[in-house]
Design a protein around this nucleic acid. Structure first.
Lengths: 248, 248
DNA sequence: TATCAGTGTTTCCCAGATCGAAACGGCAGC
DNA sequence: GCTGCCGTTTCGATCTGGGAAACACTGATA
């Protein structure tokens, strides 16, 4: 979980959020001991933090274990509705997903990873994990974004390039060539570089304040051939034009 | 924002979350002074807390003002995908929305308000605020849930019954009669009690661990007559049976 | 049934993090 | 240039949050 410890952050808050992250990422309720070991504090400290989260309504206690509360969703959804970016992007991305008959989304770069601003998952096939951290070096959307960034930022982001599959590009030079290809043809392809059996296509958006990208993801056997390399990229390019003008 | 200050919560954490709430609910970036006044701390304290949120990635600084970051969404979405309840409920609620051709959702009660576990808003007309706090006394889903709770809890929840529209029921006795009607016929109607020109229908779900309700909401002129009082309730009743068995 | 190893919970005290007051610097508008 | 308001920074006293260790409970084991 990337966290720049710039200046002096309030430590108690940082710890509380670490605890929250543990709860959110755990598939089932977790106990105090596990929280403590994952966040590198003592049991008693973990106990106080998780109980603070409970009293705030962000966690729930169930049989002496703890899990995140959907109150967090409530908070996020209010943000969603107040956020102009998301509201602008929703309909065009939904449309894109429908035309492509696949999962489609729009991501922005934050702290060296790609975050979904919105993801239309009506056509989600359930075979790959959605809403995971998307590294920039091994996803179509990530590479499309990298291709827009200055070399210096690319280097600092790419200090680590974990290989998530056999196809992940981990060599810096090879990645540079890939980024050049992307810049030339205007779109980016991910051939099972992030998840096995999942391909993606993406196009970056250049707007004034930030870099973003639209993508389409699907199972590798369905998203292949001409559809993968021409039709879907075509859909994305026209979607990106529409989105770029909508975001002005 | 309801917050039980039970036991001893870590104050720094509580303050940080207050700041986050201010950011989330503000329609535009807010300054330190405003944050301070809304959270009842000094400027310097507010400054440190909001900067901690920035360093954690949950807030962004834009021209010396602060706004929440979509990183919060990322967190919430991971929760969404890890949460069994939401995963179970998604498809049936989507189906319900499609059959009703209206917004449909499922809420649970937390701290005396109804929170959306999932809301299928493909048919959202944009005329009423979505994802707002739903008071239990003036929404179809809220009343359906109230009708399931013991009298004591009802009383404590209903200490305040703000009138959101002219049609809001604010009298405790009248509400008791309304709850009896709901228990008899098995579903709950909201005739513009929460938002002007918005009607809703809801049915409660009885599962072992918690009380929840499914609802359908739409514009009052469209959601009316036999459709409002018979067809949609019929859809909801069958959806509730399906959901109840799916949640076992 | 007794033992034990593993939980979650509570208590306690002190180091040091957090808070607030006040000073600083920058900006906008009379 | 003056004034008022804002975000930022400094700094010291206070009191909170952290950790060690004891406690309570649970379930497994023999």
């Amino acid at each position: 979980m990337s966290t720049q410890t710039e200046g002096e952050a309030i430590e108690a808050t940082v710890r509380s959020f670490s605890v929250l992250h543990v709860l959110v990422d755990a598939p089932r309720p977790v106990g105090v001991t596990e929280i403590a070991s994952r966040t590198d504090v003592t049991k008693s400290t973990a106990y106080k933090h998780v109980n603070t989260l409970v009293s705030l309504g962000y966690a729930e206690k169930v049989e002496s274990r703890y899990r995140p509360s959907i109150r967090l969703l409530d908070c996020a959804r209010r943000l969603e509705w107040n956020n102009e970016l998301i509201r602008t992007v929703r309909d065009p991305v939904d449309e894109l997903a429908e035309m492509a008959n696949e999962v489609a989304g729009l991501v922005v770069e934050r702290d060296g990873v790609a975050i979904d601003v919105y993801c239309a998952d009506q056509y989600y096939s359930g075979t790959f994990p959605a809403y995971n951290t998307r590294y920039l070096h091994c996803s179509a959307a990530g590479k499309a974004i990298l291709a827009e960034l200055p070399e210096r930022r690319i280097d600092s982001i790419l200090e680590t390039c974990p290989a998530l599959t056999d196809h992940t590009i981990t060599d810096r030079d090879e990645l540079s060539m890939e980024l050049n290809r992307i810049r030339e043809r205007g779109f980016s392809l991910d051939r099972q570089e992030q998840f096995p059996d999942v391909n993606s296509v993406a196009v970056s958006l250049r707007t004034d304040d930030f870099v973003s990208a639209v993508y389409v993801s699907g199972q590798a056997d369905e998203l292949s051939g001409k559809r993968f390399e021409e039709n879907i990229p075509g859909l994305l390019l026209s979607a990106s034009r529409m989105l770029t003008s909508a975001l002005e």
